[in-house]
Each structure stands twice: as structure tokens, then as C-alpha cells.
């Protein structure tokens, strides 16, 4: 039996997987040229073209049609899909929403996700968190229920209220972060003004202020970041002292920064919280500082 007759030989040849000895022997066989000719002739074969964009549009249309028949889809994918499709089709979304008189949206994020609310406000929902709201009368009644953690960016308009087991947060056009669990609530205000009512307390927060509440517990705090870390997996700063940025960096990576340099310089930018090398480059790079990481002792040396 010739080597090319064995069961996977030619497949491996076509894929360039033969050993050089196998290949040499094969090339000397009288059949080689015939196989080579087939290989070359099929190198540039094509089928008729495929208009992928057009086909996808058609597909969306057909899914849209089927959607009119209820019960085939669960609420979550339909709504998400409808929102995306609205950009392309614009009409079907309206038709869809009007099919239901009181559309309650109940959504749990499987990963960090941004959800647009009917008035243009948005909720960045942390993975595994849940929100629900009534989409039908949203413009008159901006009440949303949260279980978990979310960052809200609120358009101006009627009162905006987030309800939780432990209390409620009310605002007028602002952005803020809520971390909510069964027994504690932490709210951080990133812009505008926020009113927090929970555990029998009523507090107002201004930009950069945070509050942690629990039964018989209250703690006020500050932030110099302008977005919660979990949203981009990075710490984001606008015009704060380098000292503040470094404190945050030390906390995120559990390291100590050593060395003499000017800590009062202003910093605008962000650093990732999951990659220390990139983080160091983004913090110290702009100031022409050199750094050296001693992983064992958790120390970063800065050399001017």
C-alpha cells in the first residue's frame, strides 16, 4: 500500500501537516502531480456571493413578523431585540409595545449591561442585578425597582425614584451609583444632587459624596472618581491630585507606592483595575516617571 492511501494521509497533506520525510516520499510518487493539480485548482474556488447585510435585514424582518404571535419569545429577549431593531426599522417597536397595555420590564443582567429607559435616561446594570419598571407610563411615573447594583444617568424630567428593599433614592437629572444588598445600602453621587431615604434616615448627597446606610449604621464618604470602577473595570478621574489617584491605585492592587515625587500635580484619566502593568503606565507614564514593581513585597518604586 502506498502511503497516500492510508486513511488520513491526503487530508493531512492538504493541510500541510505531513512530516518532511512523508512529503518527500509522496512527491516522488507518480500520483503526486495529479493530486497537486486538484489542490491547485481548488485553491481559489468560490461560490456565488452572499449579501450578508441584506440577508440579516431580511432575517430581522421575518423574526419581527413572527413576534406578533405571542408566547414564542420571553419578554427579555424581545424587548432587547426590539430596542436594537428600532434603530433599523423604527416602526415595529411601536407596534410591539402597543400590543400590551401595561408593559412591565423585568430584567436581570447576565453581564454588565447598559439599559436605555424610555425617556433617554440609562441604567448601567451590574452583572446579576435586576431592575423592573413599568414602560407604559414611564414618562409620568419614573419609578424603578432595583435589586443589586446599578449606575443611573438620569435625564431631567419628572421625579425619578429608585425603590429598593431598604428604601428609596430620588433625583432630578443626575448620575449616581447604588449598591444594595439585604441589609446595607451605599449610594454615591457622581453629578447633580441625590436624596436618599432609607432605614429611617433622609440624606442629601452632592457631587462626589457617598453614604453607606444600614440598621443603626451610617457612614459618609467621598469619591474623586467620576464613574464607578465596575463599569469599565477601571478607575476614572477628572482633575484630581495625583495623591488621590495613587491612594486609589494602592487600594485596588494592595501595594504601597514609594519614592519622592510631586503628589500635588493634577491627574485626568483612568487606569484599569485588573492589570497592574497597564495601570502603572497610565498613572506614572504621563509624568515621565519610571516605576519598578516588587511583586513579592507589594511595593512600587518611583524613580524621577
Amino acid at each position: 500500500m502506498k502511503n497516500w492511501e492510508s486513511d488520513t494521509f491526503l487530508a493531512r497533506w492538504l493541510n500541510g501537516e505531513l512530516s518532511s520525510d512523508e512529503l518527500k516520499e509522496f512527491e516522488q510518487s507518480e500520483e503526486f502531480a495529479k493530486f497537486q493539480k486538484i489542490k491547485e485548482a481548488t485553491e481559489n474556488l468560490e461560490t456565488a456571493s452572499y449579501d450578508e447585510e441584506e440577508e440579516f435585514r431580511k432575517l430581522l424582518g421575518r423574526i419581527e413578523e413572527k413576534k406578533a404571535k405571542p408566547k414564542q419569545f420571553r419578554i427579555q429577549p424581545i424587548l432587547r431585540y426590539a430596542a436594537a431593531a428600532a434603530l433599523i426599522l423604527s416602526v415595529p417597536l411601536v407596534i410591539y409595545l402597543s400590543l400590551f397595555n401595561d408593559e412591565i420590564v423585568d430584567f436581570t443582567a447576565s453581564q454588565n449591561e447598559k439599559i436605555e429607559l424610555p425617556d433617554g435616561s440609562s441604567v448601567q446594570l451590574r452583572s446579576q442585578s435586576n431592575i423592573s419598571y413599568n414602560a407604559t407610563d414611564w414618562s409620568e411615573n419614573r419609578v424603578i425597582t432595583l435589586d443589586g447594583e446599578a449606575f443611573f444617568d438620569v435625564e431631567e424630567g419628572e421625579k425619578f425614584e429608585v425603590k429598593m428593599e431598604s428604601g428609596a433614592v430620588r433625583v432630578l437629572g443626575t448620575s449616581f451609583n447604588i449598591t444594595e444588598s439585604a441589609d446595607t445600602l451605599k449610594v454615591t453621587c457622581y453629578s447633580g444632587k441625590v436624596e436618599v431615604e432609607a432605614f429611617g434616615d433622609l440624606k442629601q448627597l452632592e457631587v462626589g459624596e457617598s453614604i453607606t446606610l444600614a440598621e443603626d449604621f451610617i457612614e459618609e464618604g467621598k469619591t474623586s472618581m467620576n464613574l464607578p470602577v465596575w463599569i469599565n473595570q477601571s478607575a476614572t478621574f477628572r482633575n484630581v491630585a495625583l495623591r488621590v489617584v495613587i491612594e486609589e491605585f494602592e487600594e485596588q492592587y494592595e501595594v504601597k507606592v514609594l519614592g519622592k515625587f510631586d503628589l500635588s500635580q493634577n491627574y485626568t484619566g483612568q487606569f484599569p483595575v485588573n492589570d497592574i502593568e497597564i495601570a502603572m503606565a497610565q498613572i506614572f507614564g504621563p509624568y515621565n516617571l519610571d516605576w519598578e514593581l516588587d511583586e513579592e513585597n507589594g511595593e512600587v518604586f518611583i524613580i524621577e
Binding site: D7, T8, A11, L14, F35, I38
Partner: peptide, 14 residues
């Protein structure tokens, strides 16, 4: 199985 089919296809074509 795929590699076998592929090899057989080449032999058949030849």
C-alpha cells in the same frame, strides 16, 4: 472522520 472523508474525496477525484 472528517480527515478520512477528505482523503477519500481526494482519491475519488483523482
Amino acid at each position: 472522520a472528517i480527515e478520512k472523508r477528505m482523503s477519500k474525496a481526494l482519491i475519488k477525484l483523482k
